[in-house]
């Protein structure tokens, strides 16, 4: 496991079912694997629609890993834990 700091952004649009599920899932994974070395920013596009362009957000919810490189996007409610961990490069691809 890497010892780097993780900068994560979760894009949501209002308090929808999918967004809530995604946020809950994410929090759970981070507590398990990245405790103390991550920052999570939740961006509600309904409040700040202009922010969607910067990270090329199409789908909601989208999790963006800004740091460390490479930039990764994971879309969906993050229900598949394996995929999320692989996507965040926490766990290497099998």
């Amino acid at each position: 496991m890497e010892q780097e700091h993780y900068e994560l952004r979760l894009y949501v649009a209002g308090k929808t079912q999918k967004s809530t599920t995604a946020l809950n899932n994410l929090k759970k994974y981070c507590e398990e694997h990245l405790l103390g070395k991550y920052t999570l920013e939740v961006i509600d596009l309904l409040v700040n629609p202009q922010l969607a362009e910067g990270d090329q957000i199409l789908a909601i919810p989208t999790l963006v890993k800004k740091v460390p490189d490479p930039v990764r996007k994971i879309i969906g409610d993050l229900s598949n834990k394996e995929k999320v961990l692989v996507g965040l490069d926490i766990r290497p691809k099998v």
Binding site: Y11, A13, T16, K18, T21, A22, L45, L46, P49, A52, E53, I57, L58, A59, I60, P61, T62, P70, V71, R72, K73, I74, I75, G76, D77, L78, S79, N80, K83, V84, V86, G87
Partner: peptide
Amino acid sequence: EIEETGEYDLEGLFIRLN
């Protein structure tokens, strides 16, 4: 760059468009 896990929609596109 994109990994898909579970349910999602394209609300982001809509918001951008809007």
